[in-house]
């Protein structure tokens, strides 16, 4: 068979809503795009453990501590599933980590914002996970089989993440004046970064076109962002705290809210590495990896010795 035939098979699969599996022929650009997207997604999960992990030691009740610990652990698990999905495309976890640690690979810039109060843990669950879930539900139908399967598992596990965040927000928003102030402040600080999570506006999104064509993504950035805003407004109203946007207004003709765009200059700066926590996050990842090197070496050496013993026996 010639390459052209392979390409036709690939296109036919996409057209029939079938999945592409690791051993199937795929265009090199498709593979590259996926490796970039899936590994970035994995990095985001792993780096995303850090801002929330910041509060594990200070969680204000034992129940809250258990929930937060389980949630941060889930994020590690999700990073693991996603790295595996990327590995099936022929890149090793080592290579991906190397790209993360040297700053070559990107991760979601939301995790470069600091968690300053306990309400931030609520806001992250409510808004950041809320936005992530919206994206991930779509990705369950992504055309690459291993990515799609990882997303199915992740969505199932993440269903508690947003709820626990909203529960924290509820307790804060209906708590003491101090708590209510923290809740409002957290919404103020996390609102626009959450809107940024869906990526640049469609008109300026360089990778979107191919991603949609290949069904790696299935909905546009702006479309998802709109849905997120529409869903979140009523949740903020219930909490009796206000979304920090004077232009937020119901638009009957589009059956959705009009809202102010986030500051895309800030977004570009954070992506470039100028967020308040970029340096710290990368340092934390590098430190864990470097300090873990001797542990991994010891485990590899031990396994080798065990193998030698069992072959000698």
């Amino acid at each position: 068979m010639s390459t052209i035939d392979f390409e036709a098979i690939f296109e036919a699969k996409l057209a029939n809503n079938e999945f592409i599996e690791p051993k199937d022929w795929m265009p090199e650009n498709y593979r590259k795009h996926l490796i970039r997207q899936v590994s970035q997604h994995a990095h985001s999960e792993i780096v995303g453990m850090l801002p929330e992990g910041n509060w594990i030691s200070r969680a204000p009740s034992l129940r809250a501590k258990l929930v937060l610990l389980a949630k941060v652990q889930d994020e590690g698990g999700h990073g693991l599933y996603l790295y595996t999905a990327a590995e099936s495309l022929g890149v090793s976890r080592d290579e991906m980590l190397e790209a993360l640690h040297t700053g070559k690979a990107k991760y979601s810039s939301i995790f470069n914002y600091p968690t300053l109060t306990w309400a931030d843990i609520g806001a992250i669950g409510w808004l950041v996970d809320g936005a992530a879930i919206m994206n991930q539900v779509m990705l369950q139908r992504s055309s690459y089989g291993p990515y799609s399967r990882a997303m199915v598992r992740i969505c199932k596990e993440e269903s508690f993440h947003q709820r626990q965040g909203y529960e924290i927000m509820t307790r804060m928003a209906f708590g003491t004046p101090d708590q209510k102030e923290m809740a409002q402040d957290a919404l103020n600080r996390w609102w626009y970064p959450s809107l940024m999570m869906f990526g640049p506006p469609d008109a300026e999104s360089p990778n979107s076109e191919n991603a949609l064509k290949w069904r790696i993504k299935r909905e546009s950035n702006d479309h998802l962002r709109q849905r997120f805003v529409d869903q979140t407004v009523v949740q903020a109203e219930y909490l009796n705290i206000s979304i920090p946007d004077k232009n937020l207004k119901w638009n009957e003709s589009k059956k959705g809210y009009d809202f102010s765009p986030p500051n895309w200059e800030e977004f570009k700066n954070v992506v470039k590495g100028n967020g308040i926590c970029n340096k710290e996050r990368l340092e934390a990842r590098n430190k864990a990896h470097n300090e873990g090197a001797w542990v991994r070496e010891a485990a590899a050496a031990y396994a080798k010795k065990q193998n030698q013993l069992s072959t000698a026996a």
Binding site: T84, E87, S92, R93, D94, L97, E98, A293, R296, E297, A299, A300, A301, A303
Partner: peptide
């Protein structure tokens, strides 16, 4: 990074 520095085999 040394050659033996890796994540272990996949299972």
């Amino acid at each position: 990074m040394s050659m033996s520095d890796n994540q272990g085999p996949l299972w």
